[in-house]
Amino acid sequence: MDNLTTLVRKINQKLINDYAEVSGDKNPIHVDSSFAEKSQFKGTIAHGMMIVGYFSDFMDRIHGSDWSQTGRIKVKFRNPAKPGDTLSISGELKRQKEMATDSVVTTSSKYSLQCHNQRGEFISSATAEVVITDRISH
């Protein structure tokens, strides 16, 4: 298992625009600065799903293919990420539980994940779980 190295991502408007193109989510709050200036956020914000993607990448670096097969994640958005922000995505293993039968060992790992910006403001939190089943060869 890999260690829990913090993932760092810099957010700028080009990145947000590129994400809007590839995801298909072109809501003006993300891509139209004159529209977004009048919103409660006073400017454009990154897509919440971009943060979800970073959390998913974080878990993929630890568990690889198992993450795509059995992973589950629940993300709460606390504050918006904005152009100019540098995001740090970090996490810790909270609980690992192993159950064994004659033929399989099932390991459940639960994580607590966080995303902060360069000012230490809380952008998002998540809980993630992955279940790995290994067959025992006799």
Partner: peptide, 29 residues
């Protein structure tokens, strides 16, 4: 990647629904 698939599916839906200004994404599972 699961995050990519989730993102594309929301993108597909958003092309069919109207989200008024001020709409906020609260959580995602």
């Amino acid at each position: 990647p699961p995050g990519a698939l989730a993102s594309f599916t929301i993108g597909e839906l958003l092309s069919n629904i109207h989200l008024p200004p001020g709409s906020v994404h609260m959580s995602e599972e």
